[in-house]
Simulated assay, not measured.
Amino acid sequence: MSEFLSILFDPQQVLSVVAKTLFVIFLILILNTILNVVRKGLLLKAKTKKQISNVEIFTQIFRYFFTLLIIIFAVLSYSSAWSSFGIFLGFLSAAMGFALQKPITGIAAWMMVVTKRPFDIGDRIIIGDVKGDVLDVTLTHIHVAEIGGLIDGEEKSGRIVMVPNWLLFERNIVNYTSNDDFVMNKVVVNVTYESNLDHAIEIVDLSARKYLAGIIGMSPGGPEIRLDFQASGIDVQVKYFSPARHLHEYSTNITKEIFDRVRVSGDVEIAYPHTEVVFRKKGE
Rank of each mutant, 00 (worst) to 15 (best):
M1I: 04
S2A: 13
L5K: 06
D10L: 05
P11V: 07
P11M: 07
Q12K: 11
Q12Y: 14
Q13G: 07
S16I: 10
V17K: 07
V17G: 01
A19P: 00
F23H: 11
V24E: 03
L27D: 00
I34C: 10
V38R: 12
K40M: 09
L42Q: 07
L44C: 09
T48G: 08
K49N: 14
K49A: 15
Q51K: 03
N54L: 04
E56T: 07
F58I: 06
F58P: 09
Q60K: 05
I61C: 05
R63F: 08
I70T: 04
Y78A: 11
S79N: 12
S80E: 08
S83V: 11
I87K: 10
S93E: 07
G97Y: 04
G97R: 13
L100A: 07
Q101M: 12
K102F: 10
K102H: 10
P103A: 03
I104Y: 12
G106Q: 05
M111L: 14
M111S: 12
M111A: 11
K116L: 15
R117S: 09
P118E: 05
D120G: 07
D123L: 00
R124E: 06
I125K: 00
D129W: 00
V130R: 10
V134T: 10
V134L: 09
L135K: 12
D136G: 02
T140N: 12
T140M: 08
T140H: 06
V144M: 03
E155A: 05
E155V: 00
S157E: 05
R159V: 10
I160M: 04
V161G: 01
M162T: 06
V163P: 14
V163D: 09
N165H: 15
N165C: 06
L167N: 14
L168V: 01
E170L: 10
N172G: 09
N172C: 00
T177N: 05
T177M: 02
V183P: 00
V188F: 01
V188T: 05
Y193A: 02
S195Q: 05
N196G: 08
H199L: 11
L206G: 01
A208E: 13
A208Y: 08
K210V: 04
Y211A: 01
G214T: 12
I215T: 07
G222P: 04
P223G: 04
L227N: 09
A231P: 01
S232E: 13
I234D: 13
A244Y: 00
H248R: 13
Y250K: 02
D260N: 14
D260L: 14
R261Y: 03
R263L: 13
S265Y: 04
D267W: 05
H274V: 13
T275I: 12
F279W: 08
